[in-house]
Design a protein around this nucleic acid. Sequence first.
DNA 1: TAACTATATAACTATATATTTATATAGTCA
DNA 2: TGACTATATAAATATATAGTTATATAGTTA
Lengths: 111, 111
Amino acid sequence: MSKLDERALEYVAKYFKALAEPTRLKVLNALQDGEKNVGQLTEISRTTQANVSKHLSLLSDYGLVKRESRGNCVYYSIADPAIYELCELVCEQISNRMFHEADVKKIFMAN
Amino acid sequence: MSKLDERALEYVAKYFKALAEPTRLKVLNALQDGEKNVGQLTEISRTTQANVSKHLSLLSDYGLVKRESRGNCVYYSIADPAIYELCELVCEQISNRMFHEADVKKIFMAN
DNA sequence: TAACTATATAACTATATATTTATATAGTCA
DNA sequence: TGACTATATAAATATATAGTTATATAGTTA
């Protein structure tokens, strides 16, 4: 990371924020093996349709997913597979820590 | 990213959340060229000392920074340089989009 | 057109958290 | 010890946002 100005840091923070929510990650995770419509994603995320719709439009606003309506349904898919690189990096770090540091485990377990 | 269970997604979300705040990113950015004490970080982040302290203890709880008190001061440093890989990935994506998509620019500019 | 299905949105509530102000704690040095 | 400096924490406020319920919108099919 090169030295970043104020503005840039805010963009980056917003990007991370889009990924900082379990339901949205569940949706992104579910989209790994191809597009799914809102109904399917609602089932998978085990929340209300309205809630999923809200998360989807946020993800779409941030350019993380693509939207395509066909017939009666709206299909979402991953716009940029680079998201998964990010998640993989994070998962690696987390799993490394799980082995090495009991303290971190405690933190993540909290709540 | 392999298929992740509920629990894992929550860990990942928490990790992203730690990075989803401009002041914390500013601190991490400032720590790129070595440890700094709380006073220095307060100046750099242009907020109150109390606020920086809170952000620092959050970063420390999540294992992103290390804490070492020497004499009167407390010095913080990066615990895991892999953070910067993450930020770099995000910055790349953002800058790509800045060029290609006016819409995304609009989103990031909002507020 | 009317009934139906799928998705989005508005209004609301509840909760989390960033920030501030004031204060406590701990180290340093005269 | 007392004055001083640096950091952490507590309490309070303001704000953002996840989730819910109800409703609007748009497409489908009889």
